[in-house]
C-alpha cells in the first residue's frame, strides 16, 4: 500500500499535484473546527469588507467572515461527497462482485437493474425529491438518494474484474479448499478490485459534489446548511456580482475548481496505475 503511494508520487506528476490540491483543501476544511464563531451565524462581523489582514477572504453581505464560513462549507461538501462515495462503493462492490463471481441469473438480474439506473437522468429525479421533501432534504438524505444512483457504472467495472478472477487458478484452489463464496469474494478477490474502488471513489466524489453544488445554487437543497453550493446561492441571492462583492463568488469558485481538479487528477493517475502497460511506460521501462 505504502510502496504504491511512493511509486505514484515519484513517477506520476499528476498524482503529486492531485495530492497537494486535495490535501490543501482538506486541511482548509479541517480548520472549520477552530472557527471562532458558529459558521452558520449571520451578522457577526461588519458586512461587505474586502479581503484584508483582518478578514483574509473578506466578509459577505450577510455579515459572515468568508474564511471561516468557507472552511465549514468545504468541510460539509467534502463529508457529503465522502458519504455518497462510501455508500455507493459498498453497493457497487457487493453487486459487482456477486454478479461477476456468482454469474448466471444473479449476473443478468443485477446488470439489468444497473442498465436501468444508468439510463435514468438523475437531475430531474433529484429535483423531484427536493420538490416533495423541501427543506427536509438534508445532506444525509440527499447523499443517500445520490448513492442509490451512483453505483451502476462502477458495479459494471467491478463485475468485469471479478469475471476475470473467477477463472484464475487461485480461485479454483480456494473452492477446492472449501472456502465459502462470500469468503472468496471478500478475502481473495477484493484486493484485486481495490484500485478500481479508489479511482472510482474520486470520480464519484466529483460527480456528487458537483451535483450538490448545482442543486444548492438553484436553491434546491436545505439552504441553511453552509456548503459551497449554498454559499454561491446566497451570493447570487444578494446579487454579489452586480454589487461588486467579487470575493464572495471568486474565492469559493477558485477553491472549488482546485478541489475538483485535485480529485480528478487523483482519479486519472490511479486509473493509469491500474493499467500495467501505461504504468510501465510512465516509469520508462
Amino acid at each position: 500500500m505504502f510502496s504504491v503511494f511512493r511509486d505514484l508520487l515519484r513517477y506520476n506528476v499528476e498524482f503529486l499535484i492531485g495530492v497537494v490540491l486535495v490535501g490543501f483543501i482538506t486541511i482548509f476544511a479541517c480548520l472549520s473546527f477552530f472557527a471562532p464563531m458558529e459558521p452558520a451565524m449571520v451578522y457577526v462581523v461588519p458586512p461587505d469588507q474586502p479581503p484584508s489582514w483582518q478578514f483574509w477572504f473578506g466578509t459577505n453581505s450577510r455579515g459572515q467572515d468568508m474564511f471561516w464560513q468557507l472552511t465549514d462549507a468545504f468541510w460539509n461538501s467534502l463529508t457529503f461527497g465522502l458519504t455518497v462515495a462510501v455508500i455507493s462503493r459498498i453497493i457497487s462492490i457487493v453487486i459487482g462482485m456477486m454478479a461477476g463471481y456468482l454469474g448466471g441469473i444473479f449476473d443478468r438480474v443485477f446488470m439489468f437493474f444497473a442498465d436501468i439506473f444508468v439510463a435514468i437522468p438523475i437531475f430531474p429525479i433529484l429535483i423531484l425529491f427536493y420538490f416533495v421533501l423541501r427543506s427536509d432534504l438534508n445532506s444525509f438524505n440527499l447523499a443517500l438518494v445520490m448513492a442509490c444512483f451512483g453505483w451502476p457504472y462502477d458495479a459494471r467495472l467491478i463485475r468485469t474484474v471479478a469475471l476475470g478472477l473467477r477463472h484464475r487458478e487461485f480461485t479454483r484452489q480456494a473452492v477446492f479448499a472449501g472456502m465459502s463464496p462470500v469468503k472468496i469474494m471478500f478475502e481473495e478477490h477484493l484486493p484485486y478490485v481495490m484500485p478500481i474502488i479508489f479511482s472510482t471513489a474520486m470520480a464519484n466524489m466529483i460527480w456528487s459534489i458537483g451535483l450538490e453544488v448545482t442543486l444548492a445554487v438553484l436553491g434546491f437543497t436545505n439552504i441553511t446548511i453552509p456548503t459551497v453550493g449554498t454559499t454561491l446561492f446566497w451570493a447570487n441571492n444578494h446579487s454579489a456580482l452586480i454589487v461588486g462583492i467579487w470575493w464572495w463568488i471568486l474565492i469559493p469558485v477558485v477553491l472549488l475548481v482546485m478541489m475538483f481538479i485535485g480529485l480528478f487528477l487523483l482519479a486519472v493517475s490511479m486509473n493509469e496505475y491500474i493499467d500495467p502497460r501505461s504504468r510501465l511506460r510512465r516509469m520508462g521501462a
Binding site: G210, L211, V253, L256, V257, F260
Partner: peptide
C-alpha cells in the same frame, strides 16, 4: 482538458456569464 473537465456545468456556465455578460 484536464483543467476544465472536472468542473461542474453550472460553474463553467456561470463563469461564461461573468466573462461575456459583465
Amino acid at each position: 482538458a484536464i483543467g476544465l473537465q472536472p468542473i461542474p456545468h453550472y460553474i463553467v456556465a456561470f463563469l461564461m456569464v461573468i466573462l461575456f455578460g459583465f
